[in-house]
Design a protein around this nucleic acid. Structure first.
Length: 101
DNA sequence: TCATTGGCTATCA
DNA sequence: CTGATAGCCAATG
């Protein structure tokens, strides 16, 4: 069976990302860049997306609170529409697909 | 173990 | 806005 070898780090970048994302309170949003930075790699924004995309606990992590640095909602595994809807429900103001801080 | 690909991005032309 | 490129982690082969 496919087995990936971990990168002997103190904490997997993945775990860090999960923790950071989980810390995001409702009604607030963070950018992938910020999350990546807090996770320990300011340039791993893409990795964050990849991780969250295949994340094993999508329902456990509020990955929908993570948006692009431009203010755009970005993508979502369940569909950007779902993501936007969730954000709106949490009190985030979205105008024409853009998040207003 | 290494090589290649992919992705909820970022940045620049 | 579109396209290309960059730099990163994880999954797949």
């Amino acid at each position: 069976m496919p087995r990936k070898f971990s990168k002997n780090r103190t904490n997997s970048f993945r775990k860090r990302v999960y923790e950071v994302v989980r810390k995001i309170p409702q009604g607030e949003v963070a950018t992938y860049k910020e999350v990546a930075k807090l996770a320990g790699s300011p340039r791993a924004y893409r990795a964050v997306g990849n991780i969250l995309n295949k994340n094993p606990n999508l329902e456990m992590i509020s990955c929908h609170r993570v948006i692009k640095s431009d203010g755009r909602v970005g993508g979502y595994k369940y569909g950007k529409n779902k993501k936007t809807s969730l954000l709106k429900k949490e009190g985030i103001t979205i105008k024409q697909g853009r998040v207003i801080f």
